[in-house]
Design a protein around this nucleic acid. Structure first.
Lengths: 186, 186
DNA sequence: TACGTCATGTAAATAGTTACATGATTGG
DNA sequence: CCAATCATGTAACTATTTACATGACGTA
């Protein structure tokens, strides 16, 4: 996880689609990429500075209204190359999906513990909510074939997120059913 | 994610099952819990020291062979309470499953880019390998009803990991099929 | 006797979060 | 005019990784 410094590559990727301010990069993490990575503005601004020094990005300043200065970053030639190299490099390390809920279950050793059903029911509701949100996004963004064609990467990872959440929900339902069966049989 | 300091709770959870050395805690991350969390020994030893100071754990020293000293940690009453509180506390923050591969796909905007199929084929092989490994573990550890009953938490998260990997494999297969269809139709 | 594993630690660096700080713009 | 959002930054802290360091044990 940490330590491979993925953030600069994500920033490069975002900038390859369009010129963006630090603030706009920050808000991008509220969309689908936020399902796979997140960063706060306090990490983004210093990172942009480092990337500027490394000649991966440039910026131009735009005035919004009377005096508010907005820095619009874009890729340099070097940045474009570095991004392409990253995308083409192998992604061999499987992600360790930090899952606090799964860990908690691991430490509830007894199948008879009623807390399992309580925990699972709550978690089911959480994931169902996220799934509804993602499906609404899909309807909103990708109801036409053209939308899919012009934004294929976005389409792919939205489907990935939907798959992931659907699977989590299904797993919880299966295990809950097994719990209920166990409790009936005693 | 980080920053909620989950590690001490995992350590408490492991120690609730049996007395363990720092080294044994480290090796536990090579089993199923490693699918959901990981830590190096350089983080574990200092953490145990902090937990000792916080009266969450105690240890006794065992001599292995002639002089090698092994510290066997176990829970204090306080540690037991803190663990139970953690397990019962809500797990409302959905995990941001860091997925570098999904991010890379997001930045390959064009459906026509042949790199997509190459990347997906490689990734499919990675996940299939992990899935085989997990299924072998299931056969090894949970082929009897008794095994499931006496180690239910372990059984649950192994199934969770298998579900997760199965879903990833299925998603990749689906998207690869769509890619091939797209390429034929041009 | 050499190699892999068991065993325990510390130090230095980086990644990421939380908190501190400031000010302009837009829309109701 | 007030609140939400746009916009940019820094400081302090914590979590995590990589690297440094040492030594005993078991076995082939």
């Amino acid at each position: 996880m940490a330590k491979k410094n993925t953030l600069p590559y994500i920033i490069l990727g975002l900038l390859s689609k369009s010129e963006l301010s630090g603030y706009a990069i920050r808000t991008a993490f509220e969309n689908e990429i936020g399902e796979f990575w997140q960063a706060k503005h306090s990490q983004i601004y210093p990172e942009l500075k480092k990337m500027l020094a490394a000649d991966l990005v440039t910026f131009r300043t735009e005035i919004v209204g009377e005096k508010l200065e907005k820095k619009l970053y874009s890729l340099t030639a070097k940045g474009t190359t570095v991004l392409a190299d990253w995308i083409q490099s192998p992604t061999d390390d499987l992600p360790v999906s930090h899952d606090e809920f799964a860990l908690k279950l691991y430490f509830v050793s007894s199948q008879a513990d009623p807390i399992i059903a309580t925990m699972m029911t709550k978690q089911l509701s959480n994931h169902q909510q996220n799934l509804s949100h993602l499906k609404a996004r899909q309807r909103l963004l990708f109801s036409t074939a053209t939308a899919i064609k012009t934004n294929y990467g976005h389409y792919l990872i939205l489907r990935r997120a939907i798959n992931r959440e659907t699977d989590y929900v299904d797993w919880l339902k299966t295990e809950l059913a097994e719990q209920q069966k166990f409790n009936r049989q005693g």
